[in-house]
Amino acid sequence: MRFDILNARLVKTTCTTMLLAALVTGCATRGQPHDYTAFKQSRPTSILVLPPLNNSPDVAATYSMLSQVTQPLAESGYYVFPVSLVDETFRQNGLSNPAEIHGVKLQKLREIFGADSALYITVKQYGTSYAVISSESRVTAEARLIDLRSEQVLWSGSATASSAEGRNSSGGLVGLLVQAAISQIVESSTNRSHPIAGVASYRLLAAGMPNGMLYGPRSPKYKTDGNTQP
């Protein structure tokens, strides 16, 4: 009888260990590694950022995101064409709608701006949602970097940021309700989506992230990143 009890405990412990291992492995699993072959061959030095497409109901999404893409790209080692100048150039040529701008031929963009590559961004989520227990501002964006010379897709990725990240859910139902009330006041009285868009932009475009952009030639990490040919 004692042997049976010990054996049952051993089986239970083994199963628990295997389950924990599976959970850890599952949490550590990432998406398929990005193929950087075309990126490394292209070696872009300059990036033309097009006004983002907005698939969210908030009309502020396009220019909120556009105003915050230069810093992570510049810090990653690229020359970024001034986004306000680019936007004005399109307007002077009768293009003010991001969908129309995204439809301009790559060869034409290269001819007008002389850029090595163009960045196409789509905002999938932008804005604040309100609920009894939790209110949050959430931004999700996708991006593609395309070589304007070869017309190859060099890189693509997506990122999400939320104002609900890091909130402490302790304190029971009363604590959750109080926290939700405070969050709703903050979210509704301030434009929380704009700084959250900045976080999403950094996660999306800063070099060094898993499956993210490679460092550009203006970065001291350019050669150590493997983005140059010997």
Rank of each mutant, 00 (worst) to 15 (best):
A143T: 02
Y120V: 01
V49F: 00
M213I: 12
V199K: 13
L50M: 04
S117V: 00
K12N: 07
Q152S: 13
E75C: 06
V49K: 00
L48H: 00
L10Q: 04
I133W: 15
E100L: 15
A159S: 14
T17Y: 05
A164P: 03
M209V: 13
T128W: 00
K108E: 12
E142C: 04
L214R: 03
P195E: 13
N227W: 04
L10T: 11
L119V: 01
V86Q: 01
A21G: 13
R144H: 15
L214F: 08
Q92P: 08
A141C: 15
S150Q: 14
S193D: 05
Y63D: 11
N191E: 05
S67I: 01
R167M: 12
I133P: 04
I47T: 00
R144Q: 15
T29I: 15
R167H: 13
S64D: 13
S156I: 10
S169R: 11
A180D: 06
L20D: 07
A161D: 11
Y202W: 14
N191R: 03
A74W: 10
Y215A: 03
F39A: 10
L106S: 14
D4Y: 04
P82H: 11
S84C: 03
T224F: 03
L176S: 09
L95Q: 06
A21N: 07
P51K: 01
G94F: 08
D58W: 07
K12C: 09
R110D: 02
E151C: 06
D147I: 07
L95H: 00
C27I: 13
V83H: 01
P33M: 04
N55P: 01
F90K: 01
S67W: 04
R149Q: 14
L50I: 04
S129Q: 03
K40Q: 13
V11M: 05
P217E: 02
S64A: 14
I121K: 00
S96R: 14
F3Q: 10
Q229W: 08
L66M: 10
I146V: 15
L23N: 09
A181G: 14
F3V: 14
A200W: 01
I196H: 01
E142Q: 15
K221T: 06
S169E: 13
I5M: 06
R138I: 10
C27N: 11
D87C: 02
V132G: 02
S67M: 08
N191K: 03
K124T: 09
S56I: 03
Q32T: 15
N227K: 04
K12I: 07
Y120K: 08
V86P: 00
E88A: 06
N7E: 10
D35Q: 14
T122W: 00
A161M: 13
S189L: 02
R91K: 14
E142W: 06
D225G: 15
I185H: 12
G216K: 02
I121N: 02
N93W: 01
N54L: 06
C27A: 15
M18I: 15
